[in-house]
Design a protein around this nucleic acid. Structure first.
Lengths: 149, 149
DNA sequence: CTTAATCCCGACTATTTTAGTCAAGTATTA
DNA sequence: TAATACTTGACTAAAATAGTCGGGATTAAG
């Protein structure tokens, strides 16, 4: 499990999607403007999110992305794992370095903690984040600015 | 809050230190051998850990590093934050991009979740990780291999 | 049917971070 | 004093991040 700015972008974008999908699919252009993430970068992220069945797409004018499941059934870890796909940890990850059998066990030591973190994030759904008072306030403020622009 | 391989190395190294500091300070060379992390990289990490008052150093023969506080009083987040020091998040982090005042609020949205994660990791002390059964087993196995080598 | 909005895809790139190496110190103890 | 071990700084190869660019494919609307 990793927490990087990439995952942060993804969580923020999907959160924006969740807030605005009331009136049909949400375009990446709209998310890009509201969240200030470059369109091309969003395209890369959403390609992975689509491959991992978190969002689905509708093409053509008026199209965009929708959540594939209910916001209550999408966890924060789902999003982060989808976007971080190929995590080949450096060091003695896969049975080749440190010549011996169990000489180097960095991986195992960290794994325990990593699991706890994943379980924790697995327990937080998009819907729960959306009910957070501060998050709600920010979302409302963003809509106000977008509308006046 | 970020979770990267750098933080993982740091947590693993300090954990190794905690397990072996019974007989005085632990040398980086010993940690390097046991955990298979390059000595020079450990030097960089421990310089930051020392600056953040997590470990203290003893010079000269038989020297090495010791925990500055009790293992129960060092949280996992302490270690990760010490090592990740300068986290200048990309994007609209600091009031310059997106011209307006509150146009871009990516930062705030993510912040809420990030805080929850930090609080979670803040609640996990080194001592607690050490009592984890699997972690203990790995540590014992490592000592056995080190001794026979 | 054409046009425009939108997703889709691949190649390319600048910058930053990771994970080191190397060399020259300084402090301490045996 | 010599060996041990920490300390610092400069440098570097490789990867990840955060994009850009340019072209498609689909489809709703006019």
């Amino acid at each position: 499990m990793r927490l990087t700015t990439k995952g942060r972008y993804a969580v923020t974008a999907v959160l924006d999607l969740a807030f605005h999908q009331g009136k049909g699919p949400v375009s990446l252009a709209a998310i890009s403007e509201r969240q200030c993430i470059s369109l091309s970068y969003l395209e890369q992220l959403f390609a992975k999110l689509r491959r991992n069945d978190i969002v689905s797409s509708t093409r053509g004018p008026g199209g965009g992305y929708s959540l594939q499941r209910n916001a209550a059934e999408i966890s924060v870890s789902d999003i982060i794992l989808a976007v971080d796909e190929s995590v080949k940890m450096a060091g003695c990850g896969d049975s080749d370095a440190c010549d011996g059998d169990y000489q180097c066990l960095t991986h195992d030591l960290w794994q325990e903690l990593s699991n706890e973190i994943r379980e924790f994030l697995d327990g937080i759904s998009l819907a729960e984040v959306m009910t957070n008072q501060k998050v709600k306030e920010v979302s409302i403020r963003q809509d106000a600015v977008s509308a006046s622009a």
